[in-house]
Nucleic acid binder design. Sequence first.
DNA 1: TATATTTGTGTATAAATTACGCAATATGAA
DNA 2: TTCATATTGCGTAATTTATACACAAATATA
Lengths: 226, 226
Amino acid sequence: MATPNISLTVDAIVFGYEPKEGLSVLLVKRKYPPFKGRWAIPGGFVKEKESLEQAVERELEEETGVKVNYLEQLYSFGNPKRDPRSRIVTIAYYGLVRSSNFELFAATDAEDAQWFHLHELPKLAFDHQKILDYALERLQNKVSYQPIGFKLLNEKFTMEEIHHLYEVIYNRKLDRRNFRKKFLKLDILEELEEKSGGGRGRPGSYYRFDEKKYLKLEKEGMSFEV
Amino acid sequence: MATPNISLTVDAIVFGYEPKEGLSVLLVKRKYPPFKGRWAIPGGFVKEKESLEQAVERELEEETGVKVNYLEQLYSFGNPKRDPRSRIVTIAYYGLVRSSNFELFAATDAEDAQWFHLHELPKLAFDHQKILDYALERLQNKVSYQPIGFKLLNEKFTMEEIHHLYEVIYNRKLDRRNFRKKFLKLDILEELEEKSGGGRGRPGSYYRFDEKKYLKLEKEGMSFEV
DNA sequence: TATATTTGTGTATAAATTACGCAATATGAA
DNA sequence: TTCATATTGCGTAATTTATACACAAATATA
């Protein structure tokens, strides 16, 4: 037998976050059958000379204009019947984008690519709902032992923002005071002079994730746990 | 552009365990270039109509005669230069086999497929060492929050056996008495009448993993943690 | 029968988690 | 200005979990 006729694609679940909106997911509307008109997660065929990550970033750029701030391989889906046309195996990734990059869709019509609230999703094409479920589960696990939550926030953020982010990701309440203590004890945040003015009560400090310090502590065997 | 010429393979790191030997890995000797004569992890091309898991099990059967007791997708490796011939993306799995299935190589010459002690490995072909490192890391993490360790043991096992298994996987000492208490408190082991005779000191009970009970407790929100 | 060896049980101490009280600092309305 | 309200920041008691280790029970062997 010659090499079997199997095609390889990459797909990406891209998560975005806004304090008021919660978690959102980036979707594209399909222009051609199968599933024409349905919403799907962005992705496409891998080119022969590009890496898998390059393929994901290229497809995201082409289809949505979004640049991710974090990208991680999720799982490969290879059920022979997952695409009604032919055998297509997809390597799924998930990505995170900053609030500030949230709005831009330079490359396409707003019609074709859109953010959806995580809990108000349309019916998706192919096995994309399954991939999304898998991605959310991974995100929930991963933020608990790797400091990737920051990738969904701006460079500067308040305790309230990151606390709320974790509540939204876990989908449950976390005691504000204990969360704060636990997070600060990790000793990977740099407290800034600036305070969050404008709000109702007492202003809180802005913080920045100190990646260098984190990497140093990680090497020394410290473990991030939230 | 037509569909790019990318081939898809599956590869599998297969772990075995024996109390005296510790962890072992199943390797095959390559018959053709590149890397002719080198040891490699078993694997091969995915057929058009088979699932990825079927492909892994078929290749394992063909190349080594081994049937795994547990199989889990690990990661997909797609660096464009990982194979010197052409673009080959591989979806790597890892598998676990019972001690009792450990010895059989029905399908091939003993020359072609062999178990190697984890810490006495030959130099491997392609990026297979990287895949192996990844698999070991995954195994170490996974046994701590999913009851898959049993898949490396016989149906019946003593406390000493599973304790030693965890020490070998983690590569560090664990207090025997605390390990026992923690494990029994999970309430997923069935204690059998039979005792382990023949040894030196006081005989210990045999246990069996009660999968039904585990699945029930898991549904109720219990979490396995060792 | 004595000794060595291994299993099984218990317990004291330390560390981490959880629940929650309250002062400090701001806004906005009376 | 003063008071009510909102939010941050700090602390502490109670509970749970983890760790270290003592010792009795059961067996093989010298």
